[in-house]
Design a protein around this nucleic acid. Structure first.
Lengths: 219, 219
DNA sequence: GCCAAGCTGACAGGAACCTGACGGGCCGGG
DNA sequence: CCCGGCCCGTCAGGTTCCTGTCAGCTTGGC
C-alpha cells in the first residue's frame, strides 16, 4: 500500500509520515502541489492524504482537478478546525474522508486502515448489499444491471451506513459526518437525504429507529 | 474484545481457545461454516480466526462472501497450506493476516494483540446477559441470533438497569433517569415500560421488589 | 378476605418522521 | 452575460407509531 502525503507543515508531516511507516505502510511526502503532480504522474498510489492549506495553491482546486480527470484514488483531507466551509467544499469536490487538525495519530491509522480495507487488495472491490452492487472506488451503484446515480451528499450518507453495517447512527452523528462539527443544520436535512436515498436505492435499505436514528437494514 | 474461532480440529481448536482465554479475551468457537454464519448474525465480533480447511466448505469462499457484503471485521486466516498462491488468495479475499500451521501459540497471541491495537479505533462493546447479547453503541439486542427492537424509552430504561447490574432501583430513581427533573409523571408509566420490556426481553430479566423497586435479575 | 402494590390491554394525543414542493446557489453552455 | 439544469437546505402538510394515562385485573402480605 503506497500513500502520498501532501502537507507543508514539517512538524505535522514528519509525525504523520512516521506514524504511517510504523503501521508498515509505504509513504511519500511532498510539501507542494506541483511536487504532488509530479509524484502522481509516476502513478501507483493507493491513497492520498491532502492538506487543504498549501503555499502554492488551494488543495480544493487540486482535488477537483484530480477528480475531473477521472482519478479515483481515495483522498483523505486534512484540514484545520476553523475552515468549516472548506470541509463542505471538500466533500463536494470528491474527498473520501476528513480529519480535522489537530487529530489523533491513532485516528489517522484507523481511517487509513478503513480505506485500505475498502479499496486495496481486491482488484475489483464490489460490495453487494441485497440486490445492490456497490463499487466503492468508482462510486457507482447498480441494481439489476441498471446504474443508480447518487449525488455527493447522498453518497456520503450511504457510505456512512456502509462503513458500519447494522450500527445505529443518530442524526447528530450523521450531521457530523456530512457537515462540519458546528455547522448548524436547523432543519430536517438528514431526513430529506434519507428520503432521497430510499427513493433511489429502495425503501428497505435504510431503517428508521424512531427517536434514536437510522441504520442500514440487513439485506 | 470478542473473537470468533472457526476451526474443525478439536485438539487445535481447544488449544487456541484456551490460549485466547488465558489472554483475557472472550472466544466463541464453532467448527462449521454454517454455525459461523449463525454466530455472525448476532454480530459484534472484533476479530475472526478462520481455518481454511473445513468439512462443510472452503474458508476462502466464506471470507469472500463476508467481505462482499461489507463486513469489515478483521480476519486472521489459519492455514496448513503453506503455499504462496494460497496466501495471496487469502489476502486478496480480504484477510488481514495469516498464520501457517503449525504455529506457536505465543505467536498467535502477538498477532491478535497487533490486530486489536490496529482496530482499537472502532470499539464495539458487546455485553451479554444470559441469552441476550447487547451492543450498547449500536443499540441492538439479539437473542438466539434474532434481533429484538426496543423503542427509545425502553432503551433508556434497560440501560439504567444494565449500568447497575443487580442493584435495586426505585421508581423515583428510574423516573429521574427517564425524564427531565421537573417532568411530572403522575401515573404508572414506569410500571408500563417495565411491562413492555419484559414482554420483549423475557419476563425473568427484570425482577420486582415489592414496595422497593426493580432490579436486573441474575442471568 | 381485604387492601395495597403491581401488571397489562386499550386508547387518544402528539412528537417524530416522511415527502412533495420551492427557491437560492453554483456551474457549464451558448 | 444570460439561461437552464442540478444539487441541496428549508418548509409545510400528511402519516406513523411511541407513550402516558386509565381502568380493570392479578398478586402478595397479613
Amino acid at each position: 500500500m503506497r500513500i502520498l502525503l501532501i502537507e507543508d507543515d514539517t512538524v505535522l508531516g514528519a509525525a504523520v509520515r512516521d506514524q504511517i511507516a510504523a503501521d508498515g505502510r509505504s509513504v511519500d511526502w511532498v510539501t507542494r502541489l506541483d511536487a504532488a503532480e509530479d509524484a502522481l504522474r509516476g502513478a501507483g498510489y493507493d491513497l492520498i492524504l491532502l492538506d487543504l492549506m498549501l503555499p502554492d495553491g488551494r488543495g480544493i482546486g487540486f482535488l477537483k482537478a484530480l477528480r475531473s480527470r477521472g482519478e479515483v484514488t481515495p483522498v483523505i483531507v486534512l484540514t484545520a478546525l476553523d475552515q468549516v466551509t472548506d470541509r463542505i467544499e471538500g466533500l463536494n469536490a470528491g474527498a473520501d474522508d476528513y480529519l480535522v487538525k489537530p487529530f489523533d495519530l491513532a485516528e489517522l491509522s484507523a481511517r487509513i486502515g478503513s480505506v485500505a480495507r475498502r479499496y486495496s487488495g481486491n482488484p475489483n472491490p464490489i460490495v453487494t448489499h441485497g440486490a445492490l452492487e456497490i463499487d466503492l472506488s468508482a462510486r457507482s451503484i447498480h441494481r439489476d444491471g441498471r446504474p443508480i446515480q447518487l449525488t455527493a451528499r447522498e453518497w456520503a450518507l450511504f457510505e456512512a451506513f456502509l462503513s458500519r453495517p447494522g450500527q445505529l447512527l443518530s442524526k447528530a452523528q450523521l450531521e457530523d459526518k456530512l457537515y462540519a462539527f458546528n455547522a448548524e443544520v436547523e432543519s430536517n436535512a438528514i431526513e430529506v437525504h434519507v428520503s432521497r436515498l430510499r427513493k433511489k436505492l429502495g425503501s428497505a435499505v435504510i431503517e428508521t429507529e424512531r427517536g434514536m436514528g437510522y441504520r442500514l437494514g440487513r439485506p
